[in-house]
Amino acid sequence: MLHYIGRRFLQLIPVLLGMTFIVFLIIRAIPGDPAQMILGQQATKESVEALRENLGLNNPWYIQYFDYLKGLLTGDLGVSIRTNQPISTEIWPYLAATFELAFFAMFIAVVIGMNAGIISAWFQNTWFDYLAMVIALIGVSVPVFWLGLLEQWLFSINLGWFPTSGREEVRDPIMAITHFYLIDTLIQGRYDQFGTVVKHLILPGMALATIPMAIIARMTRSSMLEVMRSDYIRTARAKGQKMFIVVYKHALKNAIIPILTVIGLQTGLLLGGAILTETIFSWPGIGRYIYEAIGFRDYPVIQSGILVVAFLFVIINFIVDILYSFIDKRIKYN
């Protein structure tokens, strides 16, 4: 098992290397001179040239790439042009905000989506199955920004159940330790604040969960339907086993691999692609961080932000790959 994990880990290296190279190239393909950008339109030619030299922009591309890699390996993600802060320290609160939202959303999506899929397969062609699948179809089709606005209109403006946006009450800010507010408030014993954090999470969480939930439900249903026809399911029933255990123990474990794949991909997408939701709900996450950096042409932030998101995507899929081999011992380690 360790051997397999080690090998999969080694396979990650070329993927990550290729990723850094592509990000490096894309950023350099954007028209415009970063030195000019930093100094502004009024800067003299000499000062621009001096800064170019200083930033290493006059070196050949492979030297630049090498320096960039060297920086990455020592944990240096560069310095933000806008704030003049090192990105490696600046990025964490944004990442934590995105993690918190994405995992909250995935939790909802997995619990509801998987159970809806399982029950639909178990009671195939019943009213529950039809209803769940119609909802799932609507779920995958609905645009997130529209759903987010609808939620705000209904649940915050009309009903006043949840706040419209943000992560915390402006009047009662949370003292950040880990920047995971759910954890921070608990550490400090501020259960009242914990409640408001949950309240802030619900609307963006639901909006973000909708598409993954629908995709997971559909995938679970089709995967379960296939497994439920298996001979070993009949064997389990012939033993006198309860249908609930037959479904959740015997069938689900066999059906879970494609579901897990979808969960991994969707989690990766949520971590990077939540820009719309984060913007609508003013969520200070990584999506918004990159989005704002684009507005300011803050190249180092764009570059490092994209890199971090891509890195997370790869890591999550790596974890999913490892999980496969825990679930199915037949998955060969080569």
């Binding site: 070993y232 009949r234 064997t235 389990a236 012939a238 474990k253 011992k329 037949r330």
Partner: peptide, 11 residues
């Protein structure tokens, strides 16, 4: 059952 190959749960 007829199919011993598939009658036991593989996992």
């Amino acid at each position: 059952f007829q199919e011993p190959m598939t009658s036991l749960n593989p996992l």
